[in-house]
């Protein structure tokens, strides 16, 4: 009968440790952890709710409602597949509230470097892509004075 105490001691220790583990776990475990897998399910909703900055190509008709000229010019041009925001930067906020900070427009002095980022001759670019040699192709005149950026093909 005396020997049973060996068992009860071990059992008591086991219950105590397990209980402590469960209590601590319930205290530190985030409440949505494990609902979908070994992660916090709430994190998915938090990431989903992050703000977005680019209005996207789907929003171009909305840009076009206010910027008819550029929208119409670009629609049928060789730049038709380039989103407005590729050149003008993220404008979701502007499309919501045009009165806010003025969108970026490449300055006259920037425009050459800007066009050449895509169009400078480069052996790494796919050969089908239209490029020009910056030193040979009208180096002293801003590109935009000949090629309107929204309908560049002459």
């Amino acid at each position: 009968m005396k020997d049973i105490r060996h068992l009860t001691h071990v059992l008591a220790a086991f219950v105590l440790v397990t209980g402590a583990f469960l209590v601590i776990r319930s205290l530190v475990k985030p409440h949505s952890y494990g609902e979908l897998g070994r992660y916090r399910a709430d994190a998915v909703d938090e990431i989903k709710a992050l703000p977005f900055r680019y209005a996207g190509k789907a929003a171009q008709p909305r840009c076009g409602a206010c910027h008819k000229e550029q929208f119409q010019a670009k629609k049928g041009s060789s730049h038709r597949n380039i989103g407005c925001e590729t050149c003008h930067g993220a404008l979701a906020a502007h499309a919501e509230k045009p009165a806010g900070p003025k969108p970026r427009k490449p300055a006259e002095s920037e425009v050459v470097a800007f066009c050449l980022r895509c169009h400078a001759k480069d052996p790494s670019k796919p050969p089908r892509f239209p490029t020009v040699d910056p030193r040979g192709h009208n180096p002293d005149t801003p590109c935009a004075s000949c090629h309107p950026p929204h309908a560049p093909k002459l």
Partner: peptide, 14 residues
């Protein structure tokens, strides 16, 4: 993910 879930493409694709 925040764009995909709103029906937009990723920023890099846009």
């Amino acid at each position: 993910y925040h764009r995909l879930k709103r029906g937009l493409d990723t920023a890099c694709v846009e």
